[in-house]
Amino acid sequence: MYKQFYSGMDLTELPLFALVLFIMVFLGVCAWVFGVRRGKDFDALANMPLAEREGGHE
């Protein structure tokens, strides 16, 4: 079925290239999100609900 679908196509490597590109982008985003240097940002955001509000409003 794969060969039949792509038989008239000149760029038979295009689906493989798109898959590799998608995997590289996905892994790059995962590394950026879960990177070590972003730990401080996550800690600050996690403590926001527990922080006292300024101005005396409750």
Rank of each mutant, 00 (worst) to 15 (best):
M1D: 01
M1K: 02
Y2P: 02
K3Q: 15
K3R: 13
K3S: 12
Q4D: 13
F5P: 02
F5Q: 03
Y6Q: 01
Y6W: 08
Y6I: 09
Y6C: 08
S7H: 03
S7V: 13
S7Q: 11
S7I: 13
S7L: 02
G8Q: 15
G8D: 11
M9R: 14
M9S: 07
D10K: 10
D10W: 08
L11R: 13
L11T: 01
L11W: 10
L11K: 14
L11P: 00
T12Q: 12
T12I: 10
T12F: 04
E13G: 04
L14R: 05
P15I: 01
P15G: 00
P15E: 03
P15C: 03
L16A: 03
F17R: 09
A18K: 08
A18Y: 03
L19R: 01
L19A: 04
V20N: 02
V20C: 06
L21Q: 04
F22K: 07
F22D: 04
I23M: 06
I23F: 13
I23A: 11
M24Y: 06
M24G: 05
M24S: 09
V25C: 10
V25K: 06
V25Y: 01
F26A: 13
F26V: 03
F26W: 15
F26T: 11
F26I: 00
L27I: 08
G28L: 05
G28T: 00
V29D: 15
V29W: 05
C30F: 07
C30Q: 07
C30E: 05
A31T: 06
A31P: 01
A31R: 12
W32Y: 10
W32V: 14
W32L: 14
V33N: 03
G35F: 00
G35H: 06
V36E: 13
V36N: 05
R37Q: 13
R38Q: 14
G39R: 12
G39M: 13
G39L: 13
K40E: 11
K40T: 14
K40R: 10
K40Y: 07
D41K: 12
F42A: 10
F42Y: 15
F42L: 12
D43S: 13
D43P: 02
D43A: 12
D43F: 12
D43G: 05
A44C: 02
A44V: 09
L45D: 12
L45E: 11
L45M: 14
L45V: 09
A46M: 09
A46T: 08
N47I: 00
N47W: 01
N47L: 06
N47H: 04
N47A: 11
P49A: 03
P49V: 02
P49Y: 00
P49C: 00
L50N: 15
L50G: 05
R53L: 14
R53S: 12
R53I: 08
E54C: 03
E54L: 10
G55E: 02
G55M: 06
G55H: 11
G56S: 06
H57T: 02
E58A: 10
